[in-house]
Design a protein around this nucleic acid. Structure first.
Lengths: 146, 146
DNA sequence: GTGGGGCTTCCAGCGGCGGGAAGGTCAAGG
DNA sequence: CCTTGACCTTCCCGCCGCTGGAAGCCCCAC
């Protein structure tokens, strides 16, 4: 199975699949012509990766999860720990974004949005005494759909 | 005022300030020794940028907001539009993360997390019939604190 | 004069790919 | 048999918003 077919089957772009090979997440065979040759196991792994990524797991988490997936003697506790830590990160990110949303909603609501220059949003940014929040640099992404 | 003092005043790392100059967000004067020399206006702009960034605005949004900040004849509607669009992005990101959190919570709750290999999390990733969600690649960050 | 802090520039790297160039391969059609 | 065009290969650059580190000035206190 060529990369195009594997891409079709898994929904992953061919570029992504090549990248996953490059970083050692999959090791498809190679035909005599140099083309990658994906078997059913490769495709299962790719689909697994796609789903893990869609849940926001990092590539490194995916690597771990994939090795647990392939380890028939794994402890479910190991899997759970990875997932729980990820859940924790998501929750923190959510709290952060909710704080931003709250602040922005407040500002947007108070701005009349007409052709006059007077603007509470700019005022707040220019001198942020009112709104606290600002608790440091913003955290890393989780990623999202195109 | 040297960059270190400007950093202290604004809470931004010196590296970040240099970067902001590089991309044209601020234009501090230079002393004879080649050192950057920040005046009160520069510092105000940097603080403005820091607050805008902490609300998750992109650098390009910040550039726009900064120009509106400096434009005394701006229309508050222009500011509001930028903020409202950003709010919309945040809300979409929130919805995405909430979906992830929901799915992860469900999975984590169902995994007993002991030393047996049986694991609903792995099962789900291996064959995701149960949970829908998966609506495409994950979106770009907003950023968050260190 | 010497030590230690600041400051400067430049380059590399993060994550997770995507775009595009330059070239090899394959199957179908003329 | 030759061409076309779809596929495949590798390679390198770019994205965002910094951050770290190296190499080399500059300035002040002792």
């Amino acid at each position: 199975m060529n990369i195009g077919d594997a891409a079709q089957e898994t929904g992953l772009p061919a570029k992504t699949i090549r990248y996953y090979e490059e970083i050692g997440l999959v090791r498809p065979a190679r035909g005599e012509n140099g083309y990658r040759d994906f078997d059913a196991t490769d495709v299962r792994k790719l689909a697994f990766l796609g789903r893990a990524r869609s849940l926001g797991f990092s590539i490194e988490d995916c690597r771990t999860l994939l090795s647990l997936y392939e380890d028939r003697s794994r402890a479910s506790a190991d899997v759970k720990r990875v997932a729980a830590e990820h859940l924790e990160r998501i929750s923190r990110k959510l709290a952060e974004l909710e704080a931003m949303r709250g602040a922005l909603e407040h500002l947007v609501a108070r701005c009349h949005g007409d052709d006059r220059p007077d603007c509470p949003i700019i005022d707040d940014l220019a001198d942020a005494a009112p709104q606290p929040l600002r608790t440091g640099p913003v955290s890393k992404s989780i990623r999202s759909p195109k």
